[in-house]
Design a binder for these strands. Sequence first.
DNA 1: GCTCGTCCGATTGTCATACAGTCAGGCGAG
DNA 2: CTCGCCTGACTGTATGACAATCGGACGAGC
Lengths: 251, 251
Amino acid sequence: MTIMPYAEPVSEAGSEQVTSLAAQIGRVAAPLRSQVLDVLREAILSFRFAPGQRLIERELIDMTGVSRTTIREVLRELAAEGLVKTIPQKGAVVVALSPEEAEELYELREVLEGHLVKKFVERASDAQVVALRRAFTQLESVVERREGTVAVLKAKDVLYEVLLTGAGNSALRASLSQLHARVSLLRASSLSSGPARPPEAVAELRVLVEAVEAREAGAAADAMVTHVRAAARTGIEAIRHSSHALVAATS
Amino acid sequence: MTIMPYAEPVSEAGSEQVTSLAAQIGRVAAPLRSQVLDVLREAILSFRFAPGQRLIERELIDMTGVSRTTIREVLRELAAEGLVKTIPQKGAVVVALSPEEAEELYELREVLEGHLVKKFVERASDAQVVALRRAFTQLESVVERREGTVAVLKAKDVLYEVLLTGAGNSALRASLSQLHARVSLLRASSLSSGPARPPEAVAELRVLVEAVEAREAGAAADAMVTHVRAAARTGIEAIRHSSHALVAATS
DNA sequence: GCTCGTCCGATTGTCATACAGTCAGGCGAG
DNA sequence: CTCGCCTGACTGTATGACAATCGGACGAGC
């Protein structure tokens, strides 16, 4: 989930109608630190920093224009999120996943996303179910029209967002967001997840959405597990192929 | 509790026979930072810092003897672990869980620990199963002999450690460790989890261990879920009672 | 030519200091 | 008694400095 860039506004318990004002005065300047955090996280997840690449403080300073103090604090946060690894006396390195680790992550995803879906079915309002359907339709059309990988990812994110919100468990949301971040790191390793997957993924998700609409928690969860498992297969396969290079790069 | 300014690295008592080469080359002087992290985490989890309490940098500096730079980096890590919350312009505060958040955490624990047990049954060696039984027996006797709460917690930790190792998924381990930390934060909120729980917990865990020994994954997982659910009930109940005070302390 | 030990540069880990910005609470004026 | 200002306590951020360490280049010796 990406830690919120802006701090939780200390809810101005004041009168309602000042919302716009509160927004204005409440959060004019986000802590510099969190802005940098966002930028770097984004850079890693969009593969502008390759897995295994060293993140040298000096260079980050030059790139961002903030002081070393700030950079270092940000690096600690990224490390805690699992996006970079800090090697003693060596500094921060973008995490490169081994096939085994990837497998572990997918196993976790299976469990958590299965649960996510189950809770969504239990708790989501009808409106949220509709939103899910809408998000799915959107994804479908993006895939059909063969828009870029980025567009597909974005559509998927929307869909997940609907699920996370509907499931109503912020701890689950936090865990899954972190997990997703790390998994998409894997995507960076294997470059493309293979061109054949998206259509299949859509088919799998269609099953999911329909089960949700029928309010069948078990079936929906199963569909999600199936989906994740399929994604795992290709994902791990891909990383396995490119792993030689990675091993070289990492060591 | 002053931390030694210098790391306690290779004990230069090296004149002795080199017990283990690995130890020598492996240990590269623990970064001061990580030592401080451990100390503070420990302090939080052992309730020496109360939930809602502000952690003022200056005071931490005095307590630990390290510089502000280091302290701040540690605080970022603690924040990412979910043990402290950073309020803009206000600094770090030990997290205080609301009943709702506690409920969410327990829900997650149910899922993850259920999975943990299932995987343990699937993957653990016979030796590990024996280790589990041993850990359980130890816990049992600690509870019977009415040793302190600390001893009980320690024994539980050992048991969990066995499970985590046997399940063979380091990502799962990481997630659960974090989760456990946050849950035990809850214990700090509610002071004592109630004196009646331990014996019940032992009974629940006995069911678990026996199911594991019979290699019945489903039953074992169910037992764990039951256990967590029971713990949740008392845990949340406790926090709910003390929540007024907490709200006051937090705000 | 090859191996080995040494030295150097690049970086991290840590510290001390400084200063602006912000928030809370006290104090005094109306 | 309320309002507004002032001050003190902290955080957020920047800067400079220095030891320790690591990797690689360089040069000596075989």
